[in-house]
Amino acid sequence: MNKAAVTVMMIYAPSSSGRTAELLGGATGFVGFSALQDLGYVPAASQGVLTDDSAVSTEFRVTLRKMTKKDATTKIKALQEFETLCGSEDLESVKSALPFWPRIYAKLSIDAERRVREAAQVANKALVIQVGKQLAPHLRAVMPTWVLAMVDPHTPAALTASKAFHEAFSVEKRAEVLLFTCKAVVDHVSDNLFNQTPQTLSDPKVTAEEDMKSKYIRVLSCSLNGLSLLLSTTVKATAKKPEVIAEVKPVLQNPKFWKLAKHEHSLVSI
């Protein structure tokens, strides 16, 4: 049986759904989490695909556009340039790229080429360390990808993503961050498990069938292990356990979830 299912069975208890504001309580967290919640803030990047990048500094705009190319080498070089810019440009220039980063980061983090995925985590680490508290409004957009990256089967990518998370948030704040972004992470996992296919995750026109299947299996595996990571981290905040389970409950009630335990691929079934 997959690790996520095992984790769920170990901590599952009946619960009623709770508002995110109640989930967060009086936590101050990384930066005004409760204040953002009360304002009903929705990260710009989650409202749809951003296409007008005219507000992005010239250097970052060029680099971000290179990341959308098909060639792996081009994407890796662009990510390395992005990392360098995060350390050399002024804070306002770095911040200008923030609304566009979650969407690009999400795509690069599941790239078929493991070197691209690793470079994406290095770039993300450079960005979040540089912007600090300015990342807060974008957390719900970026954390689903970040959580799954921490369980990437390519060890260097996973270790870099984990190191970035540990450097960005103190031990005391990590559970709070995941509580704050819990719904976004669960929604992302649910979409991967129940809606996505090899054809939707890749472009069938330019991707070999075997490569599409390989990416799909990896995304399923990361989604299950990411859910396990979310649960094992957030339930340590025992007072919030019912609210966390309430968010996860719809995933558990989907018959497709339990069928994954018998998946033909060991990355998914075990």
Score class of each variant (00 low, 15 high):
C86H: 02
L79M: 14
G48N: 05
E81G: 12
L79G: 06
K70I: 11
M67L: 10
T68E: 13
F60E: 05
G48E: 02
T84E: 15
M67E: 02
K66T: 10
S57C: 12
D53M: 11
T68L: 14
T51G: 08
A45G: 09
V56E: 01
L85E: 11
F82S: 00
D53K: 07
G48H: 02
E59F: 05
F60C: 03
G48D: 05
V56N: 02
L79D: 05
T63P: 01
A72C: 04
Q47V: 00
T74L: 12
E81K: 14
D53S: 12
K70Y: 12
A45E: 09
E81M: 10
T74F: 02
D53G: 14
Q47G: 10
T63L: 08
Q80P: 06
R65E: 06
V62I: 15
R61F: 04
T84L: 15
T68N: 12
S46H: 02
I76F: 08
V62W: 11
R61Y: 04
E59K: 06
T58V: 12
K70H: 13
L64E: 03
V49R: 15
A45N: 06
F82P: 01
A55T: 12
T74V: 15
K77S: 13
T73G: 14
E83S: 15
I76Q: 09
D52A: 11
R65D: 05
E83W: 03
F82Y: 15
V62F: 13
K66F: 03
E59T: 05
L64H: 03
M67C: 15
T73M: 09
D52C: 10
D53R: 02
F82K: 08
T68G: 08
T68M: 13
L85Q: 13
T73L: 13
M67V: 04
K75L: 02
K70G: 04
R65L: 00
T68R: 10
A45L: 04
S46R: 08
T68H: 09
F60A: 04
T58D: 13
S57N: 07
E81Y: 07
A45R: 01
F82G: 13
F82E: 08
S54Q: 12
V49L: 14
G48L: 00
T68F: 07
R65S: 08
L50I: 10
G48Y: 00
T68C: 13
Q80E: 12
V56L: 06
K75G: 01
A45T: 07
S46L: 04
A78H: 01
T84A: 15
D71C: 05
D71E: 15
